[in-house]
Amino acid sequence: MEEGPTQLVASKNAESGASETFYAGAVDRIRRFMIALSLVSVATVAWRLDLRHALGFALGCAIAYLNFHWLKRGVSGLADRITKAGKPQSGAGIVVRFLLRYVLMALAAYVILTVSPASLNGLFAGLFLPVGAIACEAAYEAYAALIRRV
């Protein structure tokens, strides 16, 4: 039985709604990927190397996660301000929060460097957690597009 033009438009709308919902959840998926990757990587580093490197790596992962969370909050605040939606936030507050991330990262790197220079490599490796999570998300989206046709 052939589909009529109305049914075709309805099915296309449903498909586009499903894909919009799928892509809207990308940031939450990336955060989940970050948690999963950090758990697996910290365990691997502790097993293959030593506890000092694993602690540095865990600290790097925590900073990267916090950094990504604050980045998301900063961008949401900026978007709220531009579209005049949600609770109005001060522009200075958004900028200060955005810049505070770098201060936190520099502080953590300095503390690690003074306390235990050996774990600095782990810290730097942990800071790349968002890149790994985004790569996982890209692979998942490619899988969803090719296999599940989302």
Binding site: E20, Y23, L71, I82, F128
Partner: peptide, 24 residues
């Protein structure tokens, strides 16, 4: 966003990912 506020989810996602990758 100022031109088309309805496109906020897509633009916001692209901006977050872009900023994270540029920082890296």
């Amino acid at each position: 966003l100022a031109r088309n506020p309805a496109a906020r989810p897509g633009i916001q996602l692209a901006l977050i990912l872009g900023l994270a990758l540029i920082e890296s």
